[in-house]
Design a protein around this nucleic acid. Structure first.
Lengths: 137, 137
DNA sequence: GTATATGCAAACAATTTGCACAATC
DNA sequence: GATTGTGCAAATTGTTTGCATATAC
């Protein structure tokens, strides 16, 4: 997916802050906080402000190309919007956040729609627990 | 479940703030924000401070009798910890938050444990979308 | 009576906003 | 060149904390 296109389609401009935020979002497979993104942006261009990072993230979310999840400490986490929704597995021991897409979410959506008439636009699953690594010890 | 017992078991004291916060949590079937709880507490005893509300909620969560969920605006939401975990259905049109317990969560936990070795302690599912009422219009 | 909890006010942290200037199209 | 986006600094909002006092046991 090209940022340029999405922005152009909506008559929005391609700016350096937006470019950098997007590249960082895409290249990381973690769920980054706005602050972490801002820090990463900063290593490439120290003149870019946190508020621009927030504005970019909010915009991307409205455009449907990024998603916000709330879990853990330190505020919201951000990730590029994948076509299949993600389950976040947060290990309480080592702190690792793993993701895990798949049919579980799809089945949940189907179930809610058919049996409860609830049409879901956005599913957010956060599971706290102990990952297999830490269980083994 | 009696607050008294749980507190006594842990050699903690039954105080007016804790009593009121607990009663409000139990009597509401909404997911209340700390502020909403503080407001409700205030109608009964205006001398009770927000910080005591936060302290009570944090304590209840540590004791396993309350649960924190992060969704929507205005910070975390709180509810009494039910034996079966809840799915939160947040309607984007009317703002209603419905809950919906059941096997979906249980099945998810089983799946994660058996197929991925992830032992879940706490599952939090937030689904945004349109409720049946609003879809009908 | 003693330890634990509280109220208060101040500190913190995440996020938002108004505005003059800068950069994109 | 017009308009949209940015940096900055200040405002907001949710939450936490240190400390002297009050309260439950």
């Amino acid at each position: 997916m090209h940022l340029e296109e999405v922005l152009a389609e909506n008559e929005l401009r391609v700016t350096r802050p937006r470019r950098l935020v997007w590249d960082i979002l895409r290249s990381s497979n973690d769920h980054l906080t706005a602050q972490a993104i801002a820090d990463a942006v900063h290593t490439q261009d120290a003149s870019i402000n946190v508020s621009s990072v927030y504005r970019a993230l909010t915009l991307f979310s409205e455009l449907g190309i990024a998603r916000e999840s709330k879990f853990g400490e330190d505020g919201s986490r951000w990730e590029p919007a994948h076509s299949d929704e993600m389950i976040h597995l947060v290990c309480e021991k080592c702190g690792t956040v793993d993701h895990h897409g798949g049919q579980v979410v799809t089945r949940l959506r189907d179930h809610l729609a058919s049996d409860h008439g609830f049409v879901s636009s956005n599913v957010n699953v956060v599971v706290n627990g102990t990952c297999s690594n830490c269980s083994a010890q």
